[in-house]
Design a protein around this nucleic acid. Sequence first.
RNA 1: GGAGUUGGCCAGACAGUCGCCGCUGCCCCGGUCGGUGGAUCGGGGCGGGGGAGGAAAGUCCGGGCUCCAUAGGGCAGAGUGCCAGGUAACGCCUGGGCGGCGCGAGCCGACGGAAAGUGCAGCAGAGAGCAGACCGCCUACGUCUCCCGCGGGAGGCCGGUAAGGGUGAAAGGGUGCGGUAAGAGCGCACCGCGCGCCUGGUAACAGUGCGUGGCACGGUAAACCCCACUCGGAGCAAGACCAAAUAGGAACCCCAUGGCGUGGCCCGCGUCGGGUUCGGGUAGGUUGCUCGAGGAUGACGGUGACGUCGUCCCUAGAGGAAUGGCUGUCCUCGACAGAACCCGGCUUAUCGGCCGACUCCCCCU
Length: 139
Amino acid sequence: MSSHGYPRSLRLLTAGDYRHVFDTAVYKVHGKRLMALATPNSLGHPRLGLIFSKKNVRRAVDRNRLKRLVRESVRLQQHRLPSVDIVVLARRGLHELDNEAVHRQLHGMWRRLDREAHRQPAGRSDVVDPPAQASSGQR
RNA sequence: GGAGUUGGCCAGACAGUCGCCGCUGCCCCGGUCGGUGGAUCGGGGCGGGGGAGGAAAGUCCGGGCUCCAUAGGGCAGAGUGCCAGGUAACGCCUGGGCGGCGCGAGCCGACGGAAAGUGCAGCAGAGAGCAGACCGCCUACGUCUCCCGCGGGAGGCCGGUAAGGGUGAAAGGGUGCGGUAAGAGCGCACCGCGCGCCUGGUAACAGUGCGUGGCACGGUAAACCCCACUCGGAGCAAGACCAAAUAGGAACCCCAUGGCGUGGCCCGCGUCGGGUUCGGGUAGGUUGCUCGAGGAUGACGGUGACGUCGUCCCUAGAGGAAUGGCUGUCCUCGACAGAACCCGGCUUAUCGGCCGACUCCCCCU
């Protein structure tokens, strides 16, 4: 369990998972040309979803590169992150940043997210719903 | 050696480390079946091996595949457009013809029809379509006036003339001689052109070939149009299968002194018909999904595109979407750019490097 792998369980998989994060969105963290929405889950580890639209990042090569960077960052720092579902959104102009800059942005965002999660420990009803059931309730 | 044309190939390399997605070997755990050793499904660990492109792009053509439609034919619409071949097919490729560019190797061309019809052509210009007299040239014919040595001369009228100037993208063959008042295919020679024949060629087409016609039938068909040929529609979010929860439906059975839930049971409380089966079907999952008009190589046929046969090889298959992050070393300091059902093309983007043919120029022998 001390590994730094990136198995399927660390990802948001279904449209329902994404919907849940957007609907609740307890935490909101901004970086340079990046934004992350997050909401607590009861799984004991974070999960990541990515939304990099063609409108904001024009070329497929850049989209692939940037998504890899975000995943890599989450993979390496998964044990320092709180138990939340995160959706990272790209803003326009993100492709102009190089790998090092993106890594720095993400590092800072995770720290802020962690701090926020500790400041307002969401012990309310949000945590109780597992996202799988939340997705079914949205019809 | 320099300049250039053309065909093909490569797409930073290596090492360490941490990951991702298929495949595969062994081991472990769990479910089901079977039953000690097996089968199957799911998960995990440790090994092995594979993992973007020449354009993966634009989605501009052509197919395969899938579903829908379809007796046959026509119209409309769209597309293609020198000829022959190649191909599953094409708007692609090969060879040939014609025209243009280049000293050349080569390159470029929507390259059918304007003697079916309709239409269009700014400005300039006298005139632009069965043409036209602005300048110029001529005044022979007919006629009038004048002069004079009846011949002749000057001028006018009626005119003649497309050789020259000028306009234009384009002015109704060219050169020369004859001819004439001046001219003119008016006549002739040569060149060119049209038509018919002949010859060569599968054909497009070509020919110091033969005959014939004085000779435009102007341009535009990426204007309508005519002619010939081709084309049913939609797309992998195609399509197929499995299928929770909730609501609703159908059939059958049971019972309303009841059934169901709660509970070990009774009372109680809550609730109302209950149970079984079936089909449709949402979320979700599986499949379609990579062995194919496939590559490599050899032989044979063909000018070639390509075809036939033999041998060998298996080379991404994701799906919120893998093919990467970090570190180090080196060099020539790395462009354009990321598969999404699969092929054949075209077009566009692109740092550079390598190899093979060929052309021109210069130098040496």
